[in-house]
């Protein structure tokens, strides 16, 4: 009996893993999550800030649009949690994208509320909450990356000694 070897070389194996590591896969997942959450917040704030009574069909349209945005948010969240590896540096970048998107959404929602003269409080509360969550995730991502960089320096020093 001869010793068997893996049929795939390391290069072939890495090539086959490439789709999971591709930048576009990560961008797509982050974009789905950010767009879904921002859209949900924007539509919810608009709906909650409607000054007068609305027809049933408009309520239904708002509801459906929120469900649509939530579906994208869930899909993006699922991709990031289960399918797409987001390494420490990617998480920092994704965190800042999230902070930027949440600030833009908050400003847009607040401007819409001011123009209609209603719902500014709701817009600022929801936007503030979203921005706080995005900031907390970004701070955590920076801390994790810094801890890994420290560990790499320690281990590199030990390796080099």
């Amino acid at each position: 009996m001869t010793e068997e070897e893996p049929r795939l070389s390391a290069r072939e194996l890495i090539d086959r893993l490439e789709p999971a590591l591709a930048a576009r896969t990560r961008v797509r997942a982050v974009a789905a999550l950010v767009a879904g959450v921002s859209g949900t917040l924007f539509v919810t704030a608009l709906w909650a800030g409607e000054p007068g009574p609305l027809p049933v069909r408009t309520h239904l349209a708002f509801g459906l649009f929120i469900v649509f945005c939530l579906a994208w948010a869930c899909y993006g969240g699922w991709l990031l949690a289960r399918r797409v590896p987001l390494f420490a540096t990617d998480r920092v970048v994704a965190g800042w994208i999230g902070v930027t998107a949440s600030v833009v959404t908050t400003v847009a929602t607040a401007v819409a509320a001011v123009q209609r003269g209603a719902g500014l409080g709701t817009a600022l509360a929801l936007g503030g909450l979203l921005t706080a969550v995005a900031l907390a995730l970004t701070v955590r991502a920076h801390a994790r990356r810094a801890a890994l960089l420290r560990r790499v320096r320690e281990l590199s020093g030990r390796d080099g000694a």
Binding site: F87, A88, D159
Partner: peptide
């Protein structure tokens, strides 16, 4: 290079 160092570098995103 130790496994731990390689893993930490990979976790940072080094291909």
């Amino acid at each position: 290079m130790t496994d731990e160092l390689l893993v930490a570098r990979a976790q940072l995103g080094e291909r």
